[in-house]
Amino acid sequence: MRASPFTHNFLLMFSGPLIWAVHFVAIYGFIGIVCARPAMNLVWLGIGIATWGVIGAGFAAIAAIAAVYLRIKPRDAAPDNRSFIRWMSLTLSLLSAIAVVWETMAIFLVPACA
């Protein structure tokens, strides 16, 4: 089923923050569970699973934000609106990417389950 122009364009505009939201819930939930279950806190190459998980989620989120922006274009909109939607999608993606990077950097500064 093809999404309506409204659904398509608004999801595109909000794609960055939506991916950020999924990323945020994922890392928060992941750390919550790992810290509540010490047995799950495995180590690989000398680095805990919490660290791997948060770094991996950060890369995945940035990749997803970039992929959506680069691959999906506005649809069925007036020319002014197309440019507006594209611009909004880009800048919201950048803002979301900054938030993802800042949240990921915390893993290098703070112990996972202290």
């Binding site: 750390i31 810290c35 803002l95 938030a99 800042w102 949240e103 500064l109």
Partner: peptide, 19 residues
Amino acid sequence: IPQLSLSFFSAASMAVSIP
């Protein structure tokens, strides 16, 4: 709450100051 989890929210609190 674990410190790392707090840091996620701290980072988001900083990020919201941009807009």
